[in-house]
């Protein structure tokens, strides 16, 4: 579909992604939560039409507490869908449907870069996000679950169910702290606006772990690099909201454990060196398409 006015590639990609996030808002968050209503209808259940019901954290918590996965519930079914989608297409929920991750990213685009910290450059997010995931899974055995106390998903729901009109509902101390961290230091004042996603989201961490295995299979979708086509322009590096790409000594580095497969980099790559699809991923030494011509080019660049 052609738009009646001209917009650049970046804005087109943001608009395209924005539409997906709006769909995510309608599917998962009250007062809409059409996905939850649909699953309720399908299963004949009457779970609350809000983001709490499909939340992946609760079934995991139940599993850890020995209550079983409870598959035939909104949460159980959603967990299976999340795991399958992460295996087949990567963190699709994060990259396309999670309005919670998108909100600080989009608002952060209005904040000048000079006011932002490039956290991904200062600190490696991977051990932090997996450390948080492990800690999150362990807390029920020590201090009690932190699943709902530090939830940034419900913060979006507070906005859609009344917050925009001034009624954010009950705020506990942990909710207030989460809101500040999610929106400010790890949000609009972090480069890319997705610091909370990179460092503190257990839902994203689980999907990344699954995707890091799934993308090794030929039939799954993943971010692919055709090295021969890359001109080291760094457009993708600047575009990535998760800081998952880095250009060093003419080499493009990719961190699968933080990539949310939003495909913003794919949209902005001028040479189509980056694509999203099936087959070999093309990154690293193990990549089959390690063409000698590319290596010669790289040696020349280094020289």
């Amino acid at each position: 579909m052609k738009l009646p006015f001209k917009i650049n590639k970046e804005k087109t990609s943001l608009l395209h992604r924005g539409i997906w996030y709006a769909v995510g808002l309608l599917l998962f968050f009250a007062p809409f939560a059409y996905y939850v209503r649909g699953v309720n209808w399908l299963l004949g259940t009457a779970q609350n039409a809000g983001v709490h019901s499909p939340c992946f954290r609760m079934p995991i918590q139940n599993l850890l507490e020995g209550k079983g996965l409870q598959i035939l519930t909104v949460g159980g079914l959603s967990t299976i869908l999340l795991v399958l989608s992460a295996l087949l297409v990567g963190p699709f929920f994060c990259g396309r449907l999670c309005a919670t991750g998108a909100l600080p990213e989009y608002i952060g685009r209005l904040v000048p870069d000079a006011w932002k910290i490039n956290l991904h450059q200062e600190i490696n997010p991977v051990p932090i996000r997996y450390g948080f995931l492990v800690g999150f899974a362990l807390t029920p055995f020590f201090a009690g679950s932190i699943a709902c106390a530090f939830c940034n998903f419900t913060l979006i729901e507070r906005l859609t169910t009344g917050g925009l009109w001034g009624d954010v509902g009950y705020l506990g101390s942990t909710t207030i702290i989460t809101a500040i961290i999610w929106l400010l230091p790890l949000g609009i004042f972090a480069q890319g606006g997705r610091g909370f996603c990179s460092f503190l989201c257990p839902v994203g961490a689980v999907q990344s772990a699954i995707h890091s295995v799934g993308r090794r299979l030929g039939f799954t979708y993943k971010l692919k690099l055709a090295k021969a086509a890359c001109v080291s322009c760094s457009a993708c590096v600047k575009a990535c909201p998760m800081g998952a790409l880095r250009q060093e000594h003419g080499e493009l580095h990719y961190q699968v454990h933080t990539c949310v497969t939003c495909r913003h980099c794919v949209a902005l790559c001028p040479t189509k060196a980056l694509t999203f699809g099936t087959g070999a991923h093309g990154w690293g030494e193990s990549a089959p398409e390690q063409e000698p011509a590319v290596q010669v080019q790289l040696i020349k660049e280094k020289a």
């Binding site: 807390t139 932190i146 101390s173």
Partner: peptide, 26 residues
């Protein structure tokens, strides 16, 4: 560094759990 950060974050998350517990009476 990776291992240290990982362990530090697991510990920090557990401490956050205790902090949350201390606020249960809220």
């Amino acid at each position: 560094t990776w291992i240290l950060l990982f362990i530090a974050m697991v510990s920090l998350t557990l401490s956050v759990g205790y902090y949350k517990k201390s606020l249960n009476a809220e």
